[in-house]
């Protein structure tokens, strides 16, 4: 659970770096070439299987743990949850549900279309690329997409702010010396990921 989580945390940084190419470069082909490279590289293709495995592992473990946790308290308190603990840690399964729903939309919009060839194409230097850059820009000119996208990443942020440091606790790594470092990293990482991903639709929409 924690290892798969850390793996997904690292993957998000790679994904963010590539996504940011859309707004960092005026030439949409920079992003298209990056997406093309990611889709046609044997190392990345193997990594893709590992990634889906990691995601499935994270989800399956989460479901098993959650069911066990519900069973562990068959009768609930009539007045509960008044302990002053970190707010988002109490709603991990709920934020996970929102993220999963977003992933379904995300996969049907981009991943499956890239795999099964319904995406728009563009030819550059004799090579055919999927024109994802234009697609992304077209989508983010529409307000509902911008709102759904930003909302999903806020929920991802709520998930990460607890998940990041919780993974280190589960792995037994956090001790008195590392705890402040891990807590700080957890906040910095979450802010970077959420700000980075949400900047893309905002920049496209308002430019």
């Amino acid at each position: 659970m924690s290892l798969a989580g850390i793996f997904l945390i690292l993957f998000l940084l790679v994904h963010l770096t590539i996504n940011l190419l859309v707004i960092l470069f005026d030439d949409p082909m920079v992003y298209n070439r990056a997406a093309h490279f990611m889709g046609n590289n044997i190392v990345i293709k193997i990594f893709e299987i590992v990634l889906i495995g990691g995601l499935l592992l994270h989800v399956i473990y989460a479901l098993i743990l959650q069911v066990q946790n519900w069973i562990a308290r068959p009768r609930r308190y009539s007045k509960a949850n008044f302990s002053s603990t970190s707010f988002f840690s109490k709603f991990m399964i709920h934020t996970a549900g929102v993220i999963l729903a977003f992933l379904v939309i995300h996969f049907s919009d981009f991943y499956f279309r890239a795999k099964f060839g319904h995406a728009a194409e563009i030819v550059s230097d004799g090579v055919v690329y999927h024109d994802f850059a234009t697609e992304v820009i077209d989508k983010f000119k529409m307000l509902p997409f911008v709102i759904i996208y930003i909302a999903a990443f806020l929920f991802l942020g709520f998930h990460l702010i607890h998940g990041f440091q919780s993974a280190f606790k589960t792995l037994g790594i956090e001790n008195n010396r590392y705890a402040p470092v891990i807590q700080t990293l957890s906040v910095i990482y979450t802010v970077v990921v959420v700000a980075g991903f949400t900047a893309i639709p905002l920049v496209i929409y308002f430019m």
């Binding site: 946790n69 069973i71 562990a72 308290r73 302990s83 607890h162 589960t170």
Partner: peptide
């Protein structure tokens, strides 16, 4: 014994 799993919420430490 049927205890649940820790999700590092920290309510235990507070209480």
């Amino acid at each position: 014994l049927g205890f649940g799993n820790c999700t590092n919420t920290g309510a235990c430490e507070v209480e």
